[in-house]
Amino acid sequence: MSSLVNEIHARWTSLRSGAVATSDGLPVSTLTIGTGHGLTALALNERGQAQLLLPVAAGTRRPALDTPPALEVGAASLTGAGQRRAYLVVTCVDPLLDRAFADLVEAVLTRVVSGEPAKDALVTAINDLGALFASREADAVDDRIIRGLVAELIVLRRLTARHSGAPALWFGPVPERHDFRGGSHAIEVKSSSRTAGRVTISSADQLEAPVGGTLQLWRVALERTQGGATVSSLVADIEHHSGRSAGLRSGLVALGCHDPDDEDWNRISFNCEAIDAWTVEPGFPRIVASAFTAGVIPAGIQGLSYELDPAVADAFRVDEAEMQAQEARLAASLP
């Protein structure tokens, strides 16, 4: 986390341990960042929920925006330091999302420091990061989903070490046929529990290369272990190179991971035993639409999936140098 996010957390912790209240009875900790109408502050409401107080011009109304379920945004007049001020008050109603709220607060304050009006800064930050506050799923995350995400994040970490904009190449969470794509080049990632394991291909177009381009299949062999790579540690590694990434965070949310530090998503960890790769081209063992008459899947066949044993495709195996070359092809599409 950034130093500002750490400070935000520390302030809320201090407030919860007992702090001086305003005349309105609101536990508050004033920051040094001003909006032109007063200093911003962090607070707790009567239910102990974390809040951001943004001073605004008198008469400012609540901004018109679609507020995520776990956030509340309102306008209020509060007394502090002996005078009444108008504020926009942002509340995180789910304490389990306080970490994501701190990220949102940082985004708002950063924009305010750069000269953006407080109301505009808030709207922009919520539009960028609001998906982090969608309703949480009550059911435990399936181990296979965590394993698959860890495999993709390991590949994304490699790509981000090459180019800080690499999160824009990640399409795994959305309904695109390949997990990573840049221009006409793609990488499809599959996880395996063994270095010689089979992988599941979930559609007839998953091993179809982009038109005029190239496709590699990467198998990431993951062994469960204590103290290994987790969703949280991998996201931290990626954002060490990319900075705070709205693309990465929105991709995680699309998978149901609203907070990469959530305990449920980090209850298992892995050691990456190996990453093997194959070039997918004519002759590679696969089921694709072009293998059928007229290049289409026969009518009535829905949801085609199959297991592939890459051991039968040794002629198509590529080494680390060619894997890096494919990374460079994808990265070349980035600005």
Results as ranks from 00 to 15, higher is better:
G247W: 08
A254N: 15
V211M: 05
S232Y: 10
G148W: 07
V253L: 00
A186E: 00
E152K: 00
I201M: 02
P167C: 08
A209G: 07
S250I: 09
P175M: 04
V141G: 08
P260D: 00
V155W: 05
H163R: 08
D262L: 07
I146W: 00
S202L: 09
I146G: 01
C257L: 10
A254E: 13
I238W: 04
R198W: 02
E176T: 02
S164A: 15
R158S: 14
L248G: 11
R194E: 11
Q226R: 11
A196R: 15
P173C: 04
A229L: 09
V189L: 02
A277H: 12
I187Y: 01
I187K: 11
C257V: 09
G183W: 11
W265P: 09
H241S: 11
D262I: 02
G243T: 00
S192W: 06
V174A: 13
V189N: 04
A138N: 07
S202T: 15
R157I: 00
I275W: 05
G212Q: 07
V253N: 06
A138L: 13
W170P: 08
R224T: 12
R249N: 05
I238K: 10
F180D: 10
S191C: 14
D205C: 00
V235A: 09
N271T: 10
S193N: 11
V150D: 01
S164R: 15
W218Q: 14
E263A: 15
G172D: 05
E239P: 07
E223G: 04
P210W: 03
G183A: 07
G165A: 09
A229I: 01
D139C: 03
W278P: 05
G243P: 00
T160E: 10
V155N: 06
D261H: 15
R244N: 10
L252E: 06
D179G: 01
R144L: 14
D139N: 11
E208W: 02
L169P: 00
V199T: 14
D142V: 07
E273L: 15
V280K: 06
R177E: 14
D276A: 08
R147E: 13
D237N: 07
D264C: 04
S164E: 11
R198K: 14
T230R: 10
V231W: 12
R194N: 12
E281H: 02
E208P: 00
R162Y: 04
V155D: 01
G213S: 14
S250G: 08
L252N: 06
A229D: 14
R144F: 02
Q216M: 06
T279C: 04
D264K: 12
Q216C: 06
G228A: 05
L217C: 09
S203E: 01
S250T: 09
C272V: 15
L169I: 05
T230E: 01
A229P: 00
D237Q: 13
E188V: 01
Q206G: 07
C257Y: 03
R147H: 03
G212F: 10
C272A: 13
S232Q: 15
Q206D: 10
A229Y: 06
D264A: 09
R158V: 01
E176R: 09
A209E: 01
I154C: 12
